[in-house]
């Protein structure tokens, strides 16, 4: 067990990162906030929707605001099935966005829920093609296991529906995934407050991806710092090993005390 932040790295796809907060790019009032948010969050991994990237870059472009040295995590936002996700991933790699990809296959525009079956299919194809694949999934332990078996570099279960800021409503299933899955578990979507990110880390999650909660804050930069602190605190608490929580006071032993009674 290690309590030194300096050596407690998040390892994904063979790379080590000294931050466990992943951030997004899609919802800020202006892209030029991105460098400040990166700085305040200390984040090392940033996701960007390929659908938003203008390759011709005739106008202001999200890519030019991402600081050097960040691990780019292109996502397949807009894909409705495995084939579309695979095409988007290939396109991202072809234009120089690297070989990491966050798979989002969302056939449900109403709730933005991911399709586990299609996500597994896309993961199998892209792992085969040499991508570092981080799939976004419902908090479904069976799908998480299939993805791990298919070679996913991490799994990204949702805490609550995207953009809902409702926190860890999938808590029980998240805990099973955290307990059973070997690859890093990144809680993605639904986290609305730093305290919720902290809780996910205390549960043993390896990292959190936070976009809406930072982007929709009145002050996104300050909120990015708050999430970074909460995630560090939660991680430290998990490393420290929290004490056992008891439902009842433990002062006496009404059921077994008789064993020690003198006759």
């Amino acid at each position: 067990m290690n309590t030194e932040n300096a050596t407690d790295f998040l390892t994904i796809g063979g790379q080590e990162f000294d931050s466990r907060l992943l951030i997004g790019t899609g919802k800020y009032p202006a892209d030029d906030l991105i460098p400040e948010i990166v700085a305040a969050s200390g984040s090392r991994i940033i996701t960007v929707a390929l659908r938003r990237v203008d390759f011709a870059a005739t106008t202001d472009n999200v890519m030019q605001h991402i600081p050097d040295g960040m691990q780019l995590l292109p996502n397949t936002s807009g894909a409705r099935n495995a084939e579309e996700a695979v095409r988007i991933a290939r396109l991202a790699r072809a234009i120089g966005c690297g070989n990491w990809v966050k798979i989002e296959v969302i056939p449900d525009y109403k709730y933005l829920l991911p399709d586990g079956h299609e996500t597994v299919r896309a993961t199998e194809i892209l792992v085969e093609e040499g991508f570092v694949v981080l799939p976004y999934i419902n908090a479904d332990p069976v799908v998480a296991r299939r993805l791990e078996n298919a070679g996913a570099a991490a799994v990204m279960p949702l805490g609550a529906p995207i953009g809902s800021n409702r926190g860890l409503t999938t808590r029980e299933m998240l805990q099973i995934i955290i307990d059973d899955i070997e690859v890093p578990v990144v809680v993605d979507a639904g986290i609305g407050k730093p305290s919720q990110a902290c809780e996910a880390m205390q549960m043993g999650a390896d990292a959190c991806l936070v976009n809406t909660a930072i982007a929709s804050a009145a002050n996104p930069v300050t909120m990015a710092g708050a999430f970074a602190a909460a995630i560090r605190a939660g991680r430290l608490a998990w490393l420290a090993g929290p004490g056992v929580v008891r439902a009842v006071a433990a002062a006496s032993s009404p059921l077994t005390g008789f064993l020690y009674e003198q006759e």
């Binding site: 800020y28 009032p29 202006a30 892209d31 390929l50 659908r51 938003r52 990237v53 203008d54 106008t59 807009g78 409705r80 099935n81 084939e83 579309e84 095409r87 988007i88 396109l91």
Partner: peptide, 22 residues
């Protein structure tokens, strides 16, 4: 839009070329 705190988005989809299911 920028003055009002909104980000103008010029591109929000990437044509994937040809039919992909659906």
């Amino acid at each position: 839009l920028r003055r009002s705190g909104w980000q103008p988005v010029f591109k929000d989809w990437q044509a994937l070329g040809g039919t992909v299911g659906g």
